[in-house]
Amino acid sequence: MREVAAEFKNPVMLYSIGKDSSVMLHLALKAFAPSKPPFPFMHVNTTWKFGEMIKFRDETAARLGLNLISHTNAEGVVNNVNPFDHGSNVFTNIMKTDALKQALTEHGFDAAFGGARRDEEKSRAKERIFSFRTANHGWDPKNQRPELWNLYNARVKPGESIRVFPLSNWTELDIWQYILLEKIPIVPLYFAKMRPVVQRGGQWIMVDDERLPLNPGEVPEMKSVRFRTLGDYPLTAAVESEADTLETIVAEMLVARTSERSGRLIDHDEAGSMEKKKREGYF
């Protein structure tokens, strides 16, 4: 992180409000203490995030005095782009990938921190820690800069940028253990609670607000659920759970036989879907 702050003119830390972002933010506070992190934080808001996430985000920014930018694809809002009418693929493309590119271009950020980990998904296992993006935000997995030792080549031309993944070598267990050890605040959605949900395609979807169209015969029921990963509420499935403390969450995770991104509906869209999204500029 210090390398980025020292070498780039205008870095930004992407803040997705999830547990990985919380850890990354905590590391930034540590890396620059007693200074504050010398860059702004940015949240790409699809407008479909859980209400509790937005609340947590605003509280965190206020508590730490962070410079927080929230960006939404205005064009997408005008066209009412949503996961139901447009499908998760088109929705993600417009409200996340395009929105992110817009924001990076608009603010002229030349480096952006992301909380992705190599253990999450196969194409992420091959990411560099400093990942070069063209002026169009494209990623070419066949033409990555070699990354040796801890020597990061941070040089870019105007318009080009680098995505930086400081948590690359962390595993899900490491993340939870660190949250526990450092007492890092996280969004309450990670803890089990009675919440209104409907069952779709074998997964529990939370009815976070009245915008979720109910299919014929669907009636929201109250269940004790929690989330292993957080995104847009119509696209993020909950798991049935009673775990309402960090310790019980970690215990559940240790016995889990399903990987964490399986709750992310977008990864299943088509073969190699994550890699394709990344080439197009998704994180």
């Binding site: 190599r118 253990d119 196969k122 194409s123 296992a125 066949k142 073969a271 190699g272």
Partner: peptide, 23 residues
């Protein structure tokens, strides 16, 4: 399980460095 990128999956060979974690 470990051959991550689509292109190499189709060629049947690993073309980059992939990092894996186990305990």
């Amino acid at each position: 399980l470990v051959d991550g990128l689509q292109a190499e999956r189709e060629q049947g060979i690993t073309i980059d460095v992939a990092y894996r974690f186990f305990t």
